[in-house]
Design a protein around this nucleic acid. Structure first.
Lengths: 202, 202
DNA sequence: AAGTTTCCTTACCGCATGGTAAGTTTCGGC
DNA sequence: GCCGAAACTTACCATGCGGTAAGGAAACTT
């Protein structure tokens, strides 16, 4: 993305501790959320003091953004929404939901954060707006492709359906975290999609 | 609920300021969330100092619980889920969603709080678990009644459908708060329910 | 070997928080 | 009119926060 090139020993080392700090911060934010997770805790996890962390990331806010961006990079690799696949793109969301059931801490972070970030003053507000817009656009695309391929039940509006699917996934996570979900997320999402598709998944 | 009876003048006054404080706290929590809304801010809103507040509510946590309980009492009056109405109970959820679109601050509070409360250590954890369990049970009941009345499309499982509806409502609120929702909540919820019902809602 | 830059520590700052202690005002009951 | 409890206020505390300043120790360049 930026400068690949040759990096001398110091740059390499800097990069390493940066990554190390991000990992520590991710853990911390996952366990305690953004506001409650202090720089001192994060620093301790990374084996340094909190001004050491602030040397690499000028503010706590910057650290948060770094955590989120890194998370996105990784997520984007194994979980893109390939709109052009239409029906199969929708199917992949079931897999995403099931995968989340194995990453409780991460789910907790995003659930907490996306709610916090609802406030326009929150540092991650723009990030989440952008994230939701992109996801929405992708899913609308996927539904449109599915519709044009004749895979959709009559009366399913791609825009509405896309917003529904995102909401469903988000909302289910809260219930799952609270332990009040009466069935596995995968099954619930599958049931939702099956009601929109001419041929059920599988 | 507890002792109604005769209350002498002082008790009456105590009750009044208590109510006043709860109102102030509700406003404050709505605007800033639980963690960020300080006792001093709340006290200022109520026209007193923060130890004054703590005289009536021993801890901030207790204040929060009082706010939530009061909210539930009021909500229960104009927005019960009357399971026995089946189809019409489901329909009432559309109204609930639309009503929420006029109460941004309150929606924000519950969205933030339910995510925060996901953590088992959070003071409101048990409250939200109970709340979701009751709502789930009510909606399962409503779907069962609807099914037995022949109002449901084949293959709609009441348990799954109830969890879906709750998730949908929660998730839509986040998107609505972020400003990324492509259509009014009422329309999106209606579309969802119409897909489950033999006869569309109006 | 000297100089420079990167990285990190120790020490500190100002501020806000929830909560406490003790004293003071208010006011209804007698 | 006085008493005593209820309802506060003022003053304070310890704690933890994000962030800054200054200095030292490496690591690399020349």
């Amino acid at each position: 993305m930026s400068e690949p090139e040759v990096l001398d020993g110091r740059q390499q080392r800097g990069r390493d501790t940066r990554a190390h700090i991000i990992a520590a911060a991710t853990e911390q934010f996952c366990e305690s959320g953004y506001r409650a997770g202090s720089l001192r805790d994060i620093a301790a996890r990374a084996g340094m003091t909190h001004p050491g962390v602030l040397y690499h990331f000028p503010t706590k806010e910057a650290l948060l953004m770094a955590v989120l961006e890194r998370r996105d990079q990784m997520g984007a690799l194994d979980n893109p929404v390939r709109s052009e696949l239409g029906r199969e793109a929708l199917r992949s969301m079931v897999g995403a939901a099931e995968k989340n059931e194995t990453q409780r801490a991460l789910v907790e972070l995003f659930a907490t954060l996306s709610a916090e970030a609802t406030n326009a003053d929150h540092p991650a507000h723009d990030y989440f707006v952008g994230r939701y817009e992109r996801l929405l656009a992708s899913l609308i695309g996927a539904y449109e492709v599915a519709r044009d391929a004749g895979d959709l039940v009559e009366g399913v509006d791609p825009e509405v359906a896309a917003a529904q699917l995102i909401a469903l996934l988000d909302g289910l996570q809260v219930q799952w975290l609270l332990g009040t979900l009466p069935a596995p997320m995968g099954r619930i999402v599958t049931a939702h999609l099956d009601a929109q598709l001419r041929e059920p998944l599988h």
